[in-house]
Design a protein around this nucleic acid. Structure first.
Length: 378
RNA sequence: GCUGGGAUAGCGAAGUGGUCAAACGCAUCAGACUGUAAAUCUGCCGGCUUCGGCCUUCGUAGGUUCGACUCCUACUCCCAGCA
């Protein structure tokens, strides 16, 4: 069983520590998205320096290249990437939603490789085997991600996810036995809750998942907290799931508020591609909202993006330089901006964690929301 | 000096009598970007606008025509070849 200590809990919200074979994760924490075993534009040394505690890679992408066998040969994801810290893998379930050429059936899914058109078959067993070879500390069960208003579709995806979970667990346990015999480090399994934005389905999914012998939970198929329903779904889900196990809010963090709302309702870890993707495209986070560094007004701003930010970018470079790098499309610009945004979300989580321990979360959240979104009611 | 080719919006470049404020590309300006097919996508891109249109443009000046970026004349400048 994955060791998870809760240091302080207030309602659903808590600060804790997840103990993985590759190190501890102090929660709440933002996990860097390293889809193809790399956080885009940032080295792992830089990730460590900016305070990132863990990274998350994607099983689908690593099956395509370089293949799970190769990562196993390299000694597993942590050694392969020279990250050496805690790692997660996503199951590939999200690609059923994000890839157009995904054909889903009762057993699993067939993808058409976006690289060469090859057929890629995935199901619970295949995902588990690949994840064990890749060797991240924490695996996601193979689920069906969905983003739909059609209740029938959402329910279908949920039923499939429920049907697949015992297969995930069985295969995971089989592989765990093999690993144990071989003297390899333990790896852990999170089940993924589905149900979209339908309260009854969410409840049903959470209740089902709560009874399952897994190490933690991923909360799936929620994509933004801009709508109150989403926040409510997180709350409702975590009220049902066992308190003593860690919860990961899958893929949510395109807006900083997602982290506050997620933490408030009991999520311990987060991952999202938004900070790095948006950085690459010139959108940078500041305490006063998002800015576009490519805007003409930054041409002559000889002060940092955010003078109060402690990231490598803000401590060393001014906005005018960053603006220039974007205008001439120099890769260093993307690196600096990615470091900045990644540090921004990591730091938010650090602040959230501290505020939970200090009992000042509400003040922190209120202050952030007012400054970032210029909202009075939060 | 002669011969031939050319001059179109910030740049490059289509258009060769009406459907042209003018394709397309780049640049500019702005917007978006959920478990990353994403260093990507979208919009704008002569001026004004009550968003329906109105006005001024295709080297310069004239002309032909109901109508010209498109045809004619002269001029200016570029490029190539010949002297």
């Amino acid at each position: 069983m994955l060791k998870f200590d809760i240091e302080k809990q207030t309602g659903l919200m808590r600060a804790g520590v997840i103990h993985t074979p590759h190190g501890d994760i102090k929660t709440p924490a933002f996990v860097g998205a390293a889809t193809r075993a790399s956080v885009k534009a940032i080295t792992n040394a830089e990730m460590r320096e900016l305070g990132s505690q863990a990274i998350l890679a994607n099983t689908y992408h690593l099956i395509l290249a370089p293949g799970p066998e190769l990562i196993e040969q390299a000694g597993g994801l942590a050694d392969f990437t020279a990250w050496h810290g805690p790692t997660f893998t996503d199951s590939g379930g999200f690609q059923m939603l994000s890839l157009k050429d995904a054909k889903i059936d009762h057993d699993g899914v067939t993808f058409k490789s976006h690289i060469n058109g090859d057929k890629i078959r995935m199901n619970a067993e295949i995902s588990m085997q690949a994840q064990w070879q890749i060797g991240a500390d924490i695996h996601m069960a193979f689920d069906q991600a969905i983003d739909s208003k059609d209740k029938n579709e959402v329910e279908k995806a949920m039923r499939r996810t429920h049907d697949w979970l015992p297969r995930n667990i069985k295969e995971h346990n089989r592989l765990a036995e093999l690993a144990k015999t071989a003297g390899k480090p333990e790896q852990y399994l999170y089940a993924v809750v589905q149900g979209g934005l339908f309260e009854d389905l969410r409840k049903e999914s959470a209740e089902f998942m709560a009874t399952q012998p897994v190490d933690g939970y991923g909360i799936g198929s929620l994509y933004t907290t801009e709508t109150p329903e989403t926040a409510n779904m997180i709350k409702l889900t975590n009220e049902i799931l066992p308190q003593d196990r860690p919860k990961h809010l899958l893929g949510m963090g395109s807006e900083p508020r997602d982290l506050f709302i997620g933490a408030m309702y009991g999520c311990d870890t987060f991952d999202c591609v938004a900070p790095t993707r948006q950085a690459r495209n010139g959108a940078l986070y500041t305490p006063h909202g998002r800015i576009n560094i490519k805007n003409a007004k930054y041409r002559t701003q000889f002060s940092p993006i955010d003078p109060d930010c402690d990231c490598y970018c803000c401590k060393n470079y001014n906005a005018a330089y960053l603006h220039h790098l974007y205008k001439v499309d120099e890769i260093t610009g993307k690196t600096l901006a990615s470091i900045h945004n990644e540090r921004f979300v990591v730091r938010i989580c650090e602040q959230i964690r501290q505020s939970i321990l200090d009992g000042t979360f509400e003040a922190l959240m209120h202050d952030f929301m007012v400054k970032y979104y210029h909202e009075q009611n939060v």
